[in-house]
Design a protein around this nucleic acid. Sequence first.
DNA 1: GACCTTTCTTAACCCAAGTCAATGAAAAAC
DNA 2: GTTTTTCATTGACTTGGGTTAAGAAAGGTC
Lengths: 189, 189
Amino acid sequence: MDDPIFDFLSKYIDLTEEEKAIISDIKFVRSLKKGTILLRQGDMASECFFILKGCVYSYYLVEGEVKVTEFFVEKQPITPVSYTNKQPSEYYLECLEDCIISMGSAERTAELMQKIPRLALMGPMMLEDELASQRIKYDTFIKLSPEQRYLHLQENSPQFLERIPQYLIASYLGIKPESLSRIRKRLVK
Amino acid sequence: MDDPIFDFLSKYIDLTEEEKAIISDIKFVRSLKKGTILLRQGDMASECFFILKGCVYSYYLVEGEVKVTEFFVEKQPITPVSYTNKQPSEYYLECLEDCIISMGSAERTAELMQKIPRLALMGPMMLEDELASQRIKYDTFIKLSPEQRYLHLQENSPQFLERIPQYLIASYLGIKPESLSRIRKRLVK
DNA sequence: GACCTTTCTTAACCCAAGTCAATGAAAAAC
DNA sequence: GTTTTTCATTGACTTGGGTTAAGAAAGGTC
C-alpha cells in the first residue's frame, strides 16, 4: 500500500493495516482537469484537499489582477482558511495541471474520526507545522528582494521552476513577468 | 479580577474563580525596561510571553539591517517559533516600551495543565487563530504596494502609528524611513 | 536652559521594477 | 498541419523606492 496519503500520514502517526483499509474505504478521490477551480472567492469551502498527483495554486484577484500566494504539489494537504473559519473565501484555488485529488468533507472527516479516534491527535501537529511554514514564508518574503527571492526559489524549490509557467512564478515573487525575464537575464551573466 | 490574562483566556474558555486563582498563583510576571531583549537570534526560547502592558517587536538582523516582522501589544500572546520547534531562534524579540509581561515556561505550563486539564483544549484553538492571522498578514503584504500597506495600517491599526517610531513602521512595511516620509507627504495632498 | 541623542524630513541622484508596445516562440485548438 | 492563443522576451520610457548627506524637530539628561 504505497498510497501517497499513507506516506503523508506516517509523518504524524503509525497506522495499522486495518486502519489503512478503513481510510482507503472512506476516502473520496477525484480526477480533475487542468483549469478546474476547487474554490472560488466568495464561496464557502465545503472540502479540504490532499494532492495525490498534479499541482494546484491559490490566488487573489485584486482589481482584475492575479496575485499568487502559494503552489501546492503532490503529498500536500490544502486546508482553505474558509474551511476552518466558515467565512466566504477571499481567494481562489485552481488546478494548474490535470490532478488527482482526495477530497475531505466535514462528514467524511467525522466518520473517520469516529472509526479511528486517535487520528484526532494529528490535528494540532499539522496545525503547528502549517503555522511554522507560514511564518517562514512570510519572513522570507520580507527579508529578500525580488531577485533574492527568485534565487531562493531556485535553491529551495527548483521543481516549481520546471512545471509552473513564468508569469505565475513572477506573481508569486511579487513582480511582473517582464521583470522576472530581466532578472533571469541579469543572472545568466 | 480584571487581569488582561483572563480577558484573553475568556475568548477560548470559561474559567471558574477557583481556576483563576490557580492561574494567578502560578503565573510569573516581570517588569521589563524598554530595550530589553526577550529573545536573541541563535538562542533557544525557553519562555513564551503574554503582554500585560507595553509593546514588543520581532525582527531579523539581515546584514546588519533590522527587518521588523511584527508588533505585539497588550493582551497578545507571543509564542516564538523557537519555543515550539526547539530550534535556535532566527529572530529577536525586544521591548519597544517599558513592559509588564507574564512569562510562560514549559514547567509552569505543565503545572497548569496538570491542575486545570481542560486548559489543554485551548491549544488547538489558539493555533488555528494564529494560523489564520498569519495567513492574512502574508496575503495582505503580497497584495498591496508599500503606499497601500501604509493606508491599510492606518485603517486597521492606527494605535501603532501613534506609539511606534516611524523608522520601525517603515521596516515593517518593507521600505526605508525616507520612503515612508515621502509616502506620508504624498498622501497629505 | 544648554547639550546630546534619537527620530523625522528634505533634496539630489541612482537603479530596479512597472508600463506599454512589438516581436518571437511555444502550446493548444481546430 | 495550419491557425490561434498563450507565454516569454526585448526595448523605450516612467515611476517609486534606495542611497547619501544635511539639517530640523522632538525627547532625555544634566
